[in-house]
Nucleic acid binder design. Structure first.
Lengths: 194, 194
DNA sequence: GTTCCTTTTTATCAAATGTTAATGAACCCG
DNA sequence: CGGGTTCATTAACATTTGATAAAAAGGAAC
């Protein structure tokens, strides 16, 4: 059994248990896909038909605001699963872009094939549902934060949730995620310093 | 054919065409459910197992922020479909609350039964998927607005999207939706006056 | 109509955040 | 090693938004 399929198994099992049988079936449709730092491996308004497991590295999803600035929607830190195909695409066309913030290792599966696996295997289906639920809970949580917390509080919560990111990714990406300018982020960082 | 099932048909067809056969099957699982103004008909942390069509009236989805203030997540204006069960619940427990902002008329279906209909009928399945896609697109759009636009711009866009709401629902609900205080909303309203 | 209650507006002041620009630090490339 | 580039910090000032309180405007009940 190859290295990356074992890692994918770990990722799935962090959500819910999966049978050897299901895992075996899944491993047949997985392909490794490495990308260098800075690569936009999912592009908004382009066709996309894959599911992604992030075995190694850091990724952001983003869109462009009216002035063309990249607004970070989410961060993903491996090992973990990226947002499901159904939440990223409309009619097979991607709504958002994904960029590698570090060198990354992905394991991908065709979305159609993965959907078939979800139909055949109850545990894979359960996994898929939990990922979807999680995705939406995250969005609601972020929405509440943006609507009801100060920038300082949002940064504090961001640090609790992503303790390592601040030292690994550009602060500009974190700033747009928090809905503030990078200058404000720098100011808050100083203010929160011990 | 009763009044409300006909209205539900219109709602579905605003998303995509549906066959008479599928519609017939659907109408058997629909039940009318009226509520008075102010009623919380979906409560966070309580069990919920229904899908909802809003044939008449205005609804908000909301959660409580750390201080107990109701933060509006979305508005729904009939005739339309409410957020799907799968995006509202986790293990059958609701993540959010829904409140009638006017007297409302709902048509409800058991979520399990509706899921079966989606499996049996391709067009109902297509409808379900489009609703889901739409829901996520709305969330992304709102996320971008909160992260990258000023409060004034957010109000302008809100008016474009919901031209009538400002005169029909409490401004406090709109303010928390926009991520500002009701005092700031009042100030912006004055500023944007002709 | 009058009273009571809630919502919205207005005003004042304080605090948070944005804008712009300059400086310094880190890094890559030649 | 030097030069160029990007990114983070800092400063000064402008603008936006929040907090509080009081006044005005609406609505509902009687």
């Amino acid at each position: 059994m190859s290295q990356y399929t074992e890692q994918v198994k770990q990722i799935i099992q962090s959500y819910c248990p999966i049978s050897l049988n299901s895992y075996e079936a899944l491993s047949h449709v997985l392909k490794p896909e490495p990308y260098p730092k800075g690569n936009d491996f999912i592009k908004k308004d382009r066709r996309n038909n894959k599911e992604y497991f992030l075995t190694e590295g850091i990724v952001k999803s983003y869109v462009l605001d009216p002035e063309g600035v990249e607004i970070t929607l989410s961060f993903f830190t491996g090992p973990s699963v990226l947002a499901p195909h159904s939440t990223r695409t409309r009619n097979g066309i991607s709504n958002v872009s994904f960029k590698a913030l570090t060198e990354i290792e992905l394991a991908t599966a065709d979305a159609k094939e993965f959907e078939l696996l979800m139909i055949e295997h109850l545990d894979i289906r359960a996994f898929g549902h939990r990922v979807l639920e999680n995705e939406l809970l995250q969005k609601i949580e972020k929405e509440i934060g943006l609507a009801s917390l100060s920038a300082k509080e949002r940064l504090i919560r961001f640090r609790e949730k992503h303790p390592v990111l601040e030292s690994l990714v550009p602060h500009t990406d974190i700033a747009t995620y928090l809905g503030i300018t990078n200058v404000s982020l720098s100011r808050l960082r100083k203010e929160l310093m011990p």
